[in-house]
Design a protein around this nucleic acid. Sequence first.
DNA 1: ATACATTGGGGCATCAATGTATCAATAGAA
DNA 2: TTCTATTGATACATTGATGCCCCAATGTAT
Lengths: 179, 179
Amino acid sequence: MRTDATEVLDSAIPVLAKDRAASMQVIAKRAGISRATLVRLFPTRQDLVQAMAGKILDDCDRALSRAEADTAPVEDVLAALVAEYPPFAQLWNLVYVEPDVLGVPEASRRADSVFGRTVEFFKRGQNAGLLRNDMPAVWLASTFCGLSETAWELTLEGSMGTRQAPDFIAAILLRGAAA
Amino acid sequence: MRTDATEVLDSAIPVLAKDRAASMQVIAKRAGISRATLVRLFPTRQDLVQAMAGKILDDCDRALSRAEADTAPVEDVLAALVAEYPPFAQLWNLVYVEPDVLGVPEASRRADSVFGRTVEFFKRGQNAGLLRNDMPAVWLASTFCGLSETAWELTLEGSMGTRQAPDFIAAILLRGAAA
DNA sequence: ATACATTGGGGCATCAATGTATCAATAGAA
DNA sequence: TTCTATTGATACATTGATGCCCCAATGTAT
């Protein structure tokens, strides 16, 4: 039964989200494997963290590419992007904080690139008249990522259902919390 | 020139926000003091972190007490609370993540209490008809804290002015990002 | 059934951060 | 100026995580 590296990464993400200083021991236990096997898959902690970041960035990449290519009305494209919020939550929560990522120029550059594309997408929303034009797109993109992170944590914690999260993000993002 | 513990804490907060694993060495340097002095002020790392959490919780406490006692229209009270967003951003960013806080029952209990009062305040906003009633108050309170964190990070990073932050939070929180 | 590959467990050296202690330099009050 | 308190610098032992290695146990393919 060969262990699947991707599954290990998936189980490691919420662990590191809870405690960024979680030891390899703890991460392995949560993944249901021994520390030895974990080390075999990811020789150093940096390798693990960067693989995680890589996976998250890949997911963001795919979602953004779909959004960029989509020719449907901007509001529909935005809804589709919101439906794929988890990697953006993780981008905000892990990638953009972990020193092992920011310390490596190449990984850091890639993270910036992904976020830059997110900003561009929100600019497109502004130009289409869907999003407010009185604040820079960077703020809007950050709001999206931040809301995603909030929703993601609420689901991890249990006070929000996974299926409710996209609606929550879309509702607050577009209309806010006013009655 | 006796070193002021509060100033040290204030300078330590953004450092730990950037890198939660920052060493005492780094924290001391950022505060402009030697590691020896830092250790004298806070004998263990736990002492430092808990003092930080204590200060943040105190600030939240004060802001909440003012909001609870304020008899002005709810929208004005909310605006006043939003104007004091930093401690809530830090609550979300540091207190609610640091194992050295969550691990200590008393500190953890206090954090929960503060957040509980925040939720109560948003319930009040719902009952007054100001805030939407189709989602639990916990979601709204989390949204507020999350938006505060986003705004705070944007100011730390430099892409948002300190004076713009409250308006940003209030605008998104109430009306969202739609045009 | 046999051979091969992968895992789990344990031991061990290393390293960085931590916590503790000491002492000279210096700022501020008497 | 003198005395006292506080700081900065340095050294040291301890601790916990890490990275590396080996070997027995287990699973898988031929």
